[in-house]
Design a protein around this nucleic acid. Structure first.
Lengths: 205, 205, 205, 205
DNA sequence: TTATAAGCGAGACGGTACGTCTCGTCTTGGT
DNA sequence: ACCAAGACGAGACGTACCGTCTCGCTTATAA
């Protein structure tokens, strides 16, 4: 009996959508994910609660979209086109650059708070996790695959290496330190990681 | 005016403590961390809420202790003594063994649910995260340091390598796949990881 | 700045008006006044909410008009002309007839539900109450005044009696039993009331 | 499966109960019944909403009890014992007194607002109505029965009169004017009512 | 051997947030 | 211009838990 209640997205208020994104990101940054409430987001965005519940199924979904939107905006500002890992011919140098940038990003509060919140929610909530991986993480990881394939073609990575696994030698440790806060995330750490891992992938003598 | 309220732990009810551990782990496994409530734990354990609030500061703390206790029990059953990574002289084989075991553990539901819950909470809540790392994670990681040092002494790992970073080449990717569920965690994956990483740490020709 | 917003009643949809009346009466009858909502009336009438808000200031106003319309229709069906209390020369018999008819009406669900709802709203909301009295109640009461005046002229009611008060000896108790449901409303009850009250108004010996 | 959840009334907070009564009566007086909300009562009483929902099933029930309590307190202040209609031997004079007092009460705002609210709710909600009648109205009406019986025994009311109906000649019209606000409620009105009605009940010459 | 004081199960309390419902207003597209 | 439809800001609904606070009731020293 209960209808599906599918709202008409063509009549959706753009103004409200943006206000909700901003409020959600701000609150997660200021108070943390646990203390961010849908009521709080609605109040801060100057929006009725129903406007949130109409368009999103959960707090995590709101934040995911807000974060996605943030990333999109940042990408556009950085210069429209699709991003790729640079290819100077020197994999190690190229990856060092990327990992250092990633370290910087992870150390910046504007990224840290919402990304942490989303990751944590995804760890515990498979639907959110799947979305997070599909929409945010996997596209990033594909960039590594592309660059590593080029390196393989150039003879800097040995034949037979599974590149989807190889890339995790770089991103896995980084993510681990970031999420668990075991030890500080520094450029030196990124460099060491690249050093050890690239060496591991190099053709055997 | 407010008293320090330090309860007398010598009069603590062992029965209640155990019941709370069991209830907490069961509920996290069945309903997930988010839907596990202190009231629910108390009800399931047949315990007053105050008995939980008297001894633990938060839901996460209860679960952390419960999980620690579980690990302790498992260790005792597995054979009293302190665990270490075996040293057959072949680092690669030894680590393959350990990583395969870790994969199996991560794939077992009894471990998965509470470990995920705790990790997620730690990601977002620095206090919990610090406790988790200190009590659970770091001791495990030290085992890798020990084994890798032996390998270094045996000339299987090159001089100058920072072992605290090196170990993350093994554990980081594993944890990443487990937490984010990007791709399945298999023995083959563990083997490949060990292969690439050990190669990366090996002395240069 | 806020316009007076006087809609052009000449372009009003008669179809919608009727549908709203019917929906309002039906819903009040089925679900009760409290559970009847403007959204519900609009949905049932197949009408936009604004069409109700455009023409009526409140739920009570809709129901009042709907009920008035119902009464009008009933009156027309019963035979066009203005109704009056019959005058056979025997006040007691005439009033007995009227009060019995009133009892029957009060016991009929089609009348009971909306009349109750309106009365209750009027009790608590003076504007609605005033409308209700002016449009529905007072015209009815005037019929009593007319008939009692005839009786007074015929010497069946003593001089000096305030007829506006006198009529309340008949209608007051009836209304009271109906509204509060203290005891059942029967023809015998109506007869007794008429007996006692007419006696009270009769010329002293 | 859903438990009955019967709270332990011996542990109930008297302080909260009183605060809720006061808040409910104050709000109904100030804002009217319709604009009085449970949230509002809770906030004004400095009480959690659940404390209201734990002990009362509805807003109407809260107000009914509050009003009952008010009446009880008033009765105690007026002089502990059970109240009865005075018996000076002159029914007319005695009833005049009582009806004038009732008129005064109905004209006092402290009584008017909650009594109206409750009556209106009772008109539309049979459960509330039954409670209202049983707890408040019927006891009052019994006083009339008692006094009228004495009058009957004294020969001032004729044999055969149904006293339960007779009393409604006094209270019905009064209640009607009060609830519907048709015409002002004055002492003169009360006197006229008593005059006409007592005459109607008197033995026939 | 009793008293006395802690921990205990229970659950009422003042609160916050949930997700739903309805309000009355506003906007869009169709007739 | 009115209409059906329905998104919107607002806020109350009744529920679920939070963390604190009594209640009596064991239960285990210390007088």
């Amino acid at each position: 009996m209960t209808e599906a209640r599918t709202p008409d997205s063509s009549r959706r208020s753009e103004r409200s959508r943006r206000a909700i994104y901003e409020a959600a990101l701000a609150l997660v940054g200021e108070a943390g994910y646990g203390k961010t409430t849908i009521e709080g987001i609605a109040a801060r965005a100057g929006v009725g609660k129903q406007t949130i519940y109409r368009w999103w199924p959960s707090k995590a979904a709101v934040l995911l979209e807000a974060f996605l939107d943030l990333a999109e905006q940042a990408a556009e500002e950085a210069g429209g086109g699709e991003y790729e890992i640079p290819d100077t011919g020197d994999v190690e140098a190229d990856l060092r650059l990327v990992l250092r940038a990633t370290v910087d990003e992870m150390n910046s509060p504007a990224y840290d708070a919402p990304a942490r919140a989303l990751t944590a929610e995804g760890v515990v909530n498979p639907e959110v996790g799947a979305q997070f991986v599909e929409k945010l993480l996997e596209p990033q990881l594909q960039l590594y695959v592309t660059r590593l394939r080029a390196a393989q073609d150039a003879g800097q990575v040995r034949r037979g290496i599974d590149l989807r696994i190889a890339l995790e030698l770089f991103t896995g440790p980084l993510a681990h330190r970031w999420l668990l806060r075991t030890l500080p995330l520094t450029h030196d750490y990124a460099d060491a990681l690249v050093d050890y891992a690239v060496n591991g992938l190099a053709p055997r003598p």
